[in-house]
């Protein structure tokens, strides 16, 4: 075979592989959208479930997921951002910071069910928060913080050192430089990291399994110490735990979850590309 033929063959193989990798994703999205749209209606989005979840809507699951994601953000954003600022701007390179970094890398690799069991042990049982929105949010936050710290630290480090030096030379304190120059410059990267971290929290089932999720609760939580339904867990329940479940409800729920997660993902990409185009250093 000639070299050109080998090259054409190589490209063909690579193209096929690329299509094979991407095709299932499109297929999944397409099936969920097509079958899900039949189940989506105003009532489906805003009503309580009825008849053992076989009819009615998924309103409490939607609200529950939004509540849990907000609760997670409330805890994980300040802690993650604070940790990132410390690691990037203040920490010296010593055994302590090396240990913290090592821990962050490892935490990001821990299976989410382990976070769920950890949350059950610490928040639900030891701290006596019970299965509640608070316990679930804290558990999801534990899982999200490492993600936020590493992406935010990366964004902070990408800001040229020069700006920090100039700030000092103008009589600014280190913190003034961070607040007035470094943070605003790193904000797009930080925001993207936060959204991606929260996104993962919003779609997880395992961490909320033992810490907050209600099997069937046709009402909204009345206090942060109440249980709540949540989209990923609800999807798991109606797909595997309830016999004779109408497919429209299953796919409708999947579509709502997918739309929620996908729209946040797209938002993150938009922020990232918009600011990257504007950045001039």
């Amino acid at each position: 075979m000639s070299r050109q033929a080998i090259q054409r063959l190589g490209f063909a193989v690579l193209t096929i592989v690329a299509v094979l990798v991407v095709a299932p994703i499109f297929l999944v999205v397409a099936v969920v959208v097509f079958r899900g749209l039949q189940g989506i209606s105003w009532e489906f989005l805003t009503a309580m479930p009825r008849d053992g979840m076989k009819a009615g809507g998924i309103f409490p699951a939607i609200v529950g997921t939004l509540l849990l994601t907000s609760g997670t953000a409330l805890v994980a954003v300040p802690m993650g951002l604070g940790g990132a600022i410390y690691l990037s701007e203040y920490a010296h390179d010593n055994w302590l910071t090396r240990a913290v970094r090592l821990a962050l890398v490892n935490l990001a690799g821990i299976p989410s069910i382990v976070y769920g069991l950890f949350g059950l042990g610490l928040f639900v049982l030891f701290l006596r928060l019970g299965t509640s929105v608070v316990a679930g949010s804290l558990t999801l936050a534990m899982m999200t913080i490492p993600v936020i710290i590493s992406t935010a630290e990366e964004a902070l480090r990408a800001v040229p050192t020069e700006f920090r030096t100039v700030n000092l030379s103008l009589g600014g304190s280190r913190w003034q430089g961070i607040r007035r120059i470094v943070l605003p410059q790193a904000l797009p990267g930080i925001t993207t990291g936060i959204i991606l971290g929260l996104l993962r929290a919003a779609g997880e089932t395992a961490p909320i399994l033992f810490t907050v999720a209600a099997f069937y609760m046709p009402q909204l939580p009345r206090s942060p110490l109440d249980q709540t339904m949540a989209l990923p867990y609800h999807l798991y329940v109606i797909s595997t735990q309830v016999p004779n479940m109408p497919g429209t409800i299953q796919y409708g729920t999947a579509l709502v979850l997918l739309a929620l997660v996908l729209s946040m993902n797209i938002l993150a990409s938009v922020i990232r590309t918009y600011f990257r185009r504007r950045r001039q250093w």
């Binding site: 020069e162 700006f163 030096t165 100039v166 700030n167 030379s169 103008l170 009589g171 600014g172 304190s173 003034q176 007035r180 120059i181 410059q185 950045r279 001039q280 250093w281």
Partner: peptide, 26 residues
């Protein structure tokens, strides 16, 4: 004791904010 550097290094902000930076942090 102020300092001017080798490479021009204005902050990625407006002209006004650059000059006002020092008085603001002081």
């Amino acid at each position: 004791v102020g300092m001017v550097f080798q490479r021009p290094n204005p902050f990625p902000q407006s002209v006004f904010d650059n000059v006002a930076f020092g008085p603001r942090v002081v």
